[in-house]
Amino acid sequence: MEERQPLGDATQTRILDAADDLLERRGVRGVTIAELARRSELSRPTIYRNWADADDVVRSTLLRRVERILSALPARVHTRAALVDDILLFTALFRRDPLFARLLADEPEAFTRYTLERVGSSQRLILQWLTTAIDTAQAQDSVRPAPPSEIAVMLLLVAQSAVLSHGTVSELISEDAWERELRAALDGLLRP
C-alpha cells in the first residue's frame, strides 16, 4: 500500500466528511468503500490509496472527532484543578458529540471495538494530552509525583469507564452527582 498523505489533504477531508455523515446516519455498518466513494464523489481506488479498508476510515473519522474535541479545550493547564476541569469538559463534549453519542446509545459494541479494545490513535492522542497536562501541573506541585504517562493511563481508564457506564447508572445517580463523584475520583487520583 502506498504511504498516506498527511491528514488534512482535501481528498482525505472529502472522504472523512462522507464517513462522518454515514456514521451519524447509518452507524458503523453503513460505512463501506462503495458508499464512501459515492458520497465523496471519488473513486474506490482513491479511497484505497489513503486507507486500507472501511474500518481504517472509521478509525480516522473517530480520531478526527477526538482531535476536534481536544482543540476545544484550553491550550495548557497549570494546576490539578484545571486539569480535572478539562477532563470533565472533555467527557461532556465527548458525550454531547452526535457521533459518539449515537455509537454509545445505538452501537455500544462498535463503540467498544473502536475505543476500548485496543489503544488506538484516539487514545494515544488523549494520553499525550493528559501526559503533557500532568507534567505541567506536577511542575507546579499540584499533582503527585509519579511518571505522568502512568497517571495519564489511569485517568483515561477512569474517564472512559465513567462515560461508557453513564447510561447504565443514569437512573441511580443524577447528572450533577455523576459529575461531582467523577470530579472527586479524578482529583483523588491526582492529589499529592
Rank of each mutant, 00 (worst) to 15 (best):
L127E: 07
L88W: 09
L164G: 01
V158W: 03
A146C: 08
V28K: 01
W51A: 00
L156R: 05
M154P: 03
Q128D: 14
P108N: 11
R124Q: 14
V28R: 03
I151H: 01
H78Q: 15
A92V: 09
R124V: 03
G27W: 04
S40N: 08
A52C: 05
D135R: 10
M154N: 09
A152D: 02
L99M: 15
R29C: 08
A52R: 12
F90W: 07
D85P: 06
L62A: 05
T46N: 06
L157M: 13
L73S: 07
L103P: 01
W51T: 00
V84S: 00
E117D: 12
A37V: 04
S122M: 05
L93H: 02
S142E: 09
A159L: 04
L73G: 05
V57K: 00
L62N: 02
Q138R: 10
V158Y: 04
P108F: 06
A92D: 14
Q140W: 10
E109R: 13
R65W: 08
T112P: 02
A139E: 15
H78F: 10
R144A: 05
N50H: 13
A159D: 02
L103C: 06
S161T: 14
L70D: 08
E109F: 09
A101P: 00
R26K: 14
Q140R: 15
T46R: 07
L73M: 15
T136A: 15
D55C: 05
L155C: 11
A37M: 06
T115V: 14
L70G: 08
A37D: 02
P147A: 12
F111K: 00
T115H: 05
S71T: 11
G120Q: 04
R26C: 11
A72D: 14
A139P: 03
L73V: 14
F111H: 03
S142K: 04
E41M: 08
L70H: 07
V143A: 03
R64H: 09
L104V: 03
W129K: 07
V66K: 02
L156D: 11
I134P: 00
L157F: 11
G30T: 02
G27D: 06
L104H: 02
Y48L: 15
